[in-house]
Design a protein around this nucleic acid. Structure first.
Length: 449
RNA sequence: CGGAGUAUAGCUCAGCCUGGUAGAGCACUGGUUUUGGGUACCAGGGGUCGCAAGUUCGAAUCUUGCUACUCCGACCA
């Protein structure tokens, strides 16, 4: 992409409403634009990151055996009356009346609807286990939206729903999602720690929140330092096999949110030098809630004895529009964002320092074309402006690498490559520059970890 | 929902106390500069001062009402 033809409204100054660093940087980097309280437009750069996050989530969900579909944002109130949640959910649910006076609602979550889909079509234990998910916009009329897209009213969420014949099988489904989540966050460059959590309005008796440690997090968390270093299950993990060992390994170390903390146990289980008491951002949550919806809504199958039984369900959420600022909270410095390659809006910034110099322009054109052919997602800064501004833009929007082209380097047949994260620069010859950067970027894409 | 605050140009803000018909920097447009970490200079465009009513000869400024947004607290991916 040529920057002169792109839509990247970066801000030099920080809009006053933004309190936390991710919100400030998302506004300054031209990723989002607030439309109303808790409602945001995703501008091209932000949307590109959101799509990359979505791709990773889809890949890992699919790998774990979940199947993607898409449900509507608006739902019939009748469905929610069946589960009893139409009255229970409260003012957080946006209620709408259509022209015929029928009660609708903008979905805050989809347990009822997915249960309805399931019961319409699945009648036999032979069709289980089943895990269906979608990535769709949700609306929760939060009392106080804040921190940009971190807590917005409209938000994009991946929600998966598992269906199993009994609790034992349901726990296996829960484990599959648990492992998939570990991999998903890791691929985005996040260290997310599963912590025992309250089940809240979703209900149920087994739940973990996945928490990214950050000073700006909204929850207080307590955990064992060793969790931060734990290796993540590899891409070739067998999701049909027994995952309980992995889950047990992760859950054997103490980790809980402030709502669930038992201080005695925390201090007894974790040696003092390994105790972490910190703030955290909740980037996902998994629940097992058994027959809470299947029973009242009649989601039943015949078992191998021909008996009708309510299925055991779980639900598994990741807030995509929260994950993006969480990554920024974890990856930034005073100059701007530092994207992990896997979610970077562009992998490389190609910077032409001097657009009035024919040799620079010509070299950039050639490199730009070769980089694209080499499969590198490159943003070519061909704007007619000073070098300082171009460096500042590239640093702000956080492209992992910069390829800097100017008359000084060209005299020696070289271009400069800068690593955004370390600040290291190195000169490489023009002829090998594309291959050089490709060799650096490819292993960082984390298609497999 | 309780408490606190803000609203003036695209952004950051000054002017309001003490009423006299709107400013700065950045951004934008045209030009000069050809500048390797936001270069410098010249010229220019852009605002019913959140909305409504009131007081007044006169309101960005004073009064009242409304709306939007932000921050602190209790809830949530």
């Amino acid at each position: 992409m040529r920057l002169s033809r792109y839509f990247l409204p970066v801000l030099k100054e920080t809009p006053k409403e933004a309190e936390i660093v991710s919100h400030r940087l998302m506004l300054r980097a031209g990723m989002i634009k607030q439309e109303a309280s808790g409602l945001y437009a995703w501008l091209p750069l932000g949307y590109k990151v959101l799509r990359k996050v979505q791709d990773i989530i889809e890949q890992e969900q699919n790998r774990a055996g979940a199947i993607e579909l898409l449900m509507p944002t608006l739902q019939s109130a009748d469905l929610w009356r069946e589960s009893g949640r139409y009255d229970d959910y409260g003012k957080e649910m946006l209620r709408i009346e259509d022209r015929h006076g029928r009660d609708l609602l903008y979905g805050p979550t989809n347990e009822e609807m997915i249960t309805n889909i399931f019961r319409s079509h699945v009648k036999s234990y032979k069709d289980l286990p089943l895990n269906l998910y979608h990535i769709q916009w949700k609306f929760r009329d939060e009392i106080r939206p804040r921190f940009g897209t971190m807590r917005s009213r409209e938000f994009l969420m991946k929600d998966a729903y598992s269906f199993d014949l009994d609790k034992e099988a349901a726990v296996k489904s829960y484990h599959r999602m648990f492992v998939a989540y570990l991999r998903t966050y890791k691929r985005m460059g996040l260290t997310a720690i599963p912590m025992r959590a309250e089940t809240g309005p979703i209900g149920g008796d087994l739940s973990h929140e996945f928490i990214v440690l950050a000073d700006t997090g909204e929850s207080g968390v307590f955990c064992d330092r060793d969790l931060l270093e734990k290796p993540i299950p590899a891409a070739d993990i067998d999701y049909d096999g027994d995952l309980s060992e992995i889950v047990d390994d992760w859950t054997s170390l103490y980790a809980a949110t402030e709502d669930m903390i038992e201080m005695d146990k925390f201090e007894a289980d974790v040696p003092e030098d390994r105790r972490i008491a910190a703030r955290g951002i909740e980037v996902g949550q998994v629940f097992y809630f058994g027959e809470k919806y299947s029973e009242p809504m009649g989601a039943k199958v015949l078992n191998d004895e021909g008996k009708e039984v309510a299925v055991h369900m779980g639900s598994y959420g990741i807030g995509l529009t929260r994950v993006v600022p969480a990554i920024i909270e974890a990856c930034h410095d005073e100059d701007g964002i530092i994207w992990p390659v896997s979610v970077a809006p562009f992998e490389l910034g190609l910077i032409n320092l001097k657009t009035s110099d024919d040799a620079s322009v010509e070299t950039c054109q050639k490199l730009y074309s070769e980089l694209k052919n080499a499969g590198i997602d490159v943003l070519y800064d061909d704007r007619d402006m000073g070098a300082g501004g171009k460096f500042a833009t590239a640093d702000l929007i956080g492209l992992p690498f910069q390829m800097i082209v100017g008359p000084r380097g060209l005299k020696n047949g070289e271009v400069e490559i800068k690593d955004r994260k370390t600040g290291e620069r190195s000169n490489v010859s023009i002829d090998t520059a594309v291959e050089h950067i490709r060799a650096i970027i490819e292993p960082l894409r984390l298609d497999k970890i």
